[in-house]
Each structure stands twice: as structure tokens, then as C-alpha cells.
Amino acid sequence: MNAILIVEQALNGLQLGVMLFLMAAGLTLVFGIMNLVNLAHGSLYMVGAYLATHFMQTTGSYALGVLFGLGGTLVVGILVEVIALRTLYERDHLDQVLATFGLILFFNELVAILWGRNAIYSSLPQFLSGHVEILPNLNYSLYRLVIIAVGLLVAGLLWYVVTHTRLGMLIRAGASNRTMVAALGVNIRLLYTLVFGFGAALAGLAGLLAAPIFAVQTGMGELILIQVFVVIVIGGIGSIRGAFAGAVIVGMVDTMGRAFLKPTLATVISPSAADSAGPALASMLIYLLMAVVLAIRPQGLFGSRGG
């Protein structure tokens, strides 16, 4: 285990972290403002990945793929909100969970009908592929660096919008006082639809960024969704800062665990035991972390509401 390897894995962890953040930000905003549990957030991630890959392949243009991926997810998100989710805001969490679970089944199957059950793959354009030497002897994937940059940029923008703009003020006020916002003469329905669409677009962005790295296939959304839940529980619900901190922590812990747990264990227990225990423990690490955080700070690192 050398320094180069650690830096490389830290970058991988950061890259996973910003992707988780893109997902968590939308989910936590929608929950904080509309009090809606949206399990289908992972489906929007999948939709973004499929649309972007599909249009990249058919048009041959990366830019068009990105455009259709983002725009398409935004439109799908708004449609879902208007058709199905709008009526669920006043319902309890159980209803929301079940209805959005139904949406997941629908989207997974729809994707299977349109693109088949096998994974599809997207390729990177010339200008994004390859490696750059960021440290002596450390060549790192350019594309992963781009993901990190995009994620940090979005995080910065979000922070600015939420803390410094009128829209952000409405969003924060909406989270704590719905009737007050309505009294200000703001069309709260429209605000909700916009926030939801925006969260959907962020999920789509995460999906299209992930497409060249992971396999694009049905069910991909739920795998990341559950990790995003861990992020939100750790960070504290409804908090953008919490979502960012939680995402980076989870990204780092998960990546580092998978990379180093087995070799580290092998120095303590026998290599063969480490061979079987290492991966098992690594896959459980973020959930154990969540348990520890809950035991110490039940409201999450940045959360204000308990329970």
C-alpha cells in the first residue's frame, strides 16, 4: 500500500462521493420541501443514463447525448410529478413509499422493453478519454476528474442558490412553512414542480455521468438509491450541506474499504480468512458507519430534526 495508491483511491472515493451528492441533493430537497419520500429517484438516474447513452449512440454526438439526457430526465421528472406524485404530498410516508415503488417497477420494465435486459455501454468521446499525470507516477483518468469537477461545481452552485437567491429563500421557507410561502403569493404548486424537476435533472446528470463508468442496465438506479439513503441518514435529512458531507464520507469509506480492507486484514489474520472476510466487511462498511452515526447523533451530522 503506497502513497500513490492511496491518492488514487481517494480520488475514486471523491468521484463516487460527488455522484452520490448529485443524487442526494435532489432527494433531500424534495423531502425537505415537499415532505415526499421518492424511491423512484433512482429511476430518474437510470433514465438519464439510458437517454444519454441512447442519443450518443444514435447521433454520434456526446454533447447531444448530454443535452437529451438532461432535458429528457427533466421532462420525465416533471411528468411523474404532475401525473402521480403531486397527489401524494399530503399522504403519509407509507403511501409515498408504495406508490414510488410501483413507479420503479414500471420504469425498470419500460427500460427493459425499450433497450432490452442486457446492459448497454456508452463510449467516451476522444476529448474526455485518456489519462493525465496529476502527480509524478500517477496517471489518473481524465473523465473521472471531469466528474469530480462537475460535481463540485454543482455543489457550489446549489449552495449559492439556496443561501443567496430569492428562489433559495423560497425553498428554505417552503421547507419550514408552507402556508407562509403560499401567503407570499408564490404559486406553490409550480414551485414544487420546479424543485422536483430540478432534482430529477440532477439525478439524470448523475446517471449520464455514470453511464461510461458503470454498466447501464435496469435496476442500476436502486443500487445507488440505497447508498444515497445512507448518505442522507448520515448527513441529516433536508440539509444540502449534510448531503454533501455525507456523500463524500460514504464515497470515501466505501472506496477505501473495498481497496484496502482486504490487504489490511491480511496483515492481522490469515490471508485466506482475509480473502473471504475482506469483501464481505467492505460491502457492509457504509451501513455499519450509518449505525454508528445513528447511535451517536440520531438526527445525522447536519440534521435538525430527530426521528
Binding site: H93, F229, V230, V233, M284, Y287, M290, A291, P298, G307
Partner: peptide
């Protein structure tokens, strides 16, 4: 100890942990 959305997410997450353990 928790309720509402936390309870939902936590029970889901721990089950996923056991799933990965099985895998």
C-alpha cells in the same frame, strides 16, 4: 428509536447490507 422517513430508510439500508453480505 427513529420514526417516519428515517425508519424507512434505515430498515431498507440494513436489509441491503445483509443482501450484500449474502452476495
Amino acid at each position: 428509536r427513529t420514526s417516519g422517513i428515517y425508519f424507512i430508510m434505515i430498515t431498507l439500508a440494513f436489509t441491503q447490507m445483509l443482501y450484500y453480505l449474502g452476495v
